[in-house]
């Protein structure tokens, strides 16, 4: 389940960092900045490189690619 929440978690963490960075001491704020920037870049890359996946759940619970017009 951890795998599934990655993207959502990253977005939540970014929000958290934005909130915390102002009150953090200097070293801590540098660390937060670095972490935030990395998460933002990772998420943006994920969005840009995402490919839509449409599958079909078969009776044996395997997944097959689903293309419209197959049927």
């Amino acid at each position: 389940m951890a795998r599934k929440k990655n993207f959502e978690d990253s977005l939540a963490r970014i929000d958290q960092i934005i909130e915390q960075i102002e009150d953090a001491d200097f070293n801590e704020s540098l660390n937060l900045y670095e972490e935030g920037l990395k998460l933002i870049n990772d998420c943006s890359n994920k969005i840009d490189s995402a490919q839509q996946k449409v599958m079909r759940l078969e009776n044996d619970f395997s997944l097959k690619n689903f293309d419209e017009g197959d049927e």
Binding site: Q52, K53, V54, M55, L57
Partner: peptide, 9 residues
């Protein structure tokens, strides 16, 4: 949203 995986049943 291309991150979403759609699975047709």
């Amino acid at each position: 949203n291309r991150l979403v995986q759609l699975i047709l049943i």
